[in-house]
Design a protein around this nucleic acid. Structure first.
Lengths: 189, 189, 189, 189
DNA sequence: TATGAATGAGATTTCATTCAT
DNA sequence: TATGAATGAAATCTCATTCAT
């Protein structure tokens, strides 16, 4: 897990706040600097440019999520169904809480950080895939392409969190999403 | 269906081309004007500013898709399973083809056009939902919350199209997605 | 006296309205056209460009004033004191009424119309000068440079009309200005 | 007296140069920036926009004039006649030298700076008025409305400087203007 | 003659980035 | 390291003018 200095953390927090509530081009670095209580020039000591800062934000958010999930899955002694349930609930909770997290998973700019982030995304997919594969091996799941399914999951949770029906609560989504996925891959008799 | 003049169409085509291959702030209106073979000022005759043009592009792309789907579903005499299959295949094909269509379904900026677009999104969800509900009524599907499922579908297709595994082809995704969804909501014995 | 067609008059009226209440660069030709109920292109049938229209406005306003004054002076059988009083009162009344007539007599752009207008200005000065000279010849006035005095008069009336003390009325200014000027040039014993 | 930083002064000097020789809409901020040897963006660090810069220029020019005059009048131990003579000569000299200073004292745009400038204008009028009142009190002048007279003076000097007869020199105007004003308000026997 | 959609040069302005301190 | 004034390239947008109808 990447370590961040205190100042770097302040900047990333401020930037996360802005980038998750405004599109890239509406976020001003002077505002980020102000919110982080650092000088505008200081941003450039820690991040090469606006784009790198943007990806650093997403990367950190994503890393925290992936790390937490990985820990839960690897450490617990859970069945594939339980593991998948954990993942879906955890993702839903997170994205539901940060639904304004608009750009997250959104834009596509070529930039070194972007690749770093792509790796994290792959890490998440691979985690989910491994759970499905394990379930298949244990005869609980059947799936002709677990990697695709692994990609579906964060994708639809993001979507439903972002544009959620009015008055729906997180638990309802969690429950429904688990049922849907588990039914979608459970081994037929 | 909104009508567009010939010039408006040229502008929207050019803008779609640019916005789907570059992030918002990298798209220059002068380039759009050039690509549409109109003067820069002409853009402002048809669209109040860059943001409105951006949303007009997304809105039109989305409208075309929704209209096409609606027509297919409403006109054909298809079973719920066939209808859902049609929707998933169609969405997948479209998003797979425009995978660079980054912002599509993505960004969230308050702007009048945005609300117009939100309505289109709702239109799509409602269409899918109605197919599921019909399937439930006919005893083919079971789903405790068809609206959520309806939202999952474009969400995960977008995601898997955007960040698709290397060397995968559209048909594979179409087939797998259909199986996954149909299994996820098919009526148990 | 220059003749204006009906349409030209409509345009000049509309332009006068705008130019006398806004600075040159804030006046949009589209607004002028709209106010005159003609197409934007029509303006260009009557006036070469914005600057010419601007000067045509000033020129017409000024011409009307000068012509009226000249008629009064030339036709009446007035003493020099009465003539000067008439001129001052007339100028004051006019400028007092159009005090927002900001640019009038103000800006300085080289343009053929400008020279035409300069001639009108000279016409006014010459008229006033001739009255003073006449007064000098009749032993009522003394003035080492009647032309300068002739220029002072519209200048200070413009200024006091434009930035007039609050609550002052036109008659007070008229009376005071007449006294001031007449005393300033009356023949000492 | 308002203080200006070195850079602000450079900008104001450059802007004064441009605005006094060209009408507002012909002055390019890029030229101003170039002439001041600063970046275009730097202008916006010191002045909110073109209009504010414009008024800042006029305001400074005017302030300098008013301050100089005030100092001369207040410090010198001069009779009212001498004071008035000083004012008229000084104003004439100044406006004669900057006769291209077209807009000076001219335009009328609502803008915060404009009010600031109006105050300066009032300051000048009040100064002149006080000299006249003093002369009246000392039995040298008589004037039924010294404030009006005070407003006449800069007004007619501006006008005669702006549109001066050919080949006239400053001294001639100064001398004539003094005679005219002094005679216009001198106490009759 | 009359129009107003179209134009595009060029205006104002922004803001990521630099750099002297 | 930290700063933020300064920068200026480049963005958006305006509007006088043209011209096909």
């Amino acid at each position: 897990m990447k370590e961040y200095s205190e100042k770097e953390t302040r900047i990333l927090n401020a930037a996360a706040e802005m980038f998750t509530s405004h599109p890239f081009h509406k976020v001003l670095l002077s505002d980020v600097a102000g919110a982080a209580s650092v000088g505008k020039g200081t941003l450039y000591l820690y991040f090469k440019n606006k784009e790198e800062l943007y990806f650093a934000v997403i990367f950190r958010e994503f890393s925290i999520l992936v790390e937490k999930l990985t820990k839960k899955i690897k450490q617990g002694n859970l069945s594939p169904v339980e593991q998948l349930t954990t993942i879906i609930k955890c993702l839903t909770k997170r994205l539901f809480a940060k639904a304004t997290n608009v750009e997250l998973l959104g834009t596509f700019v070529s930039c070194p950080k972007n690749e770093e982030w792509q790796e994290k995304r792959v890490e998440l997919w691979t985690l989910i895939e491994s759970v499905i594969v394990q379930g298949v091996e244990q005869g609980e799941f059947e799936d002709s392409n677990p990697r695709l399914t692994a990609q579906y999951i964060p994708g639809f949770i993001r979507s439903v969190s972002l544009f959620r029906p009015e008055n729906i609560d997180c638990e309802t989504i969690q429950k429904h999403a688990c049922e849907f996925v588990l039914k979608g891959i459970k081994k037929g008799k």
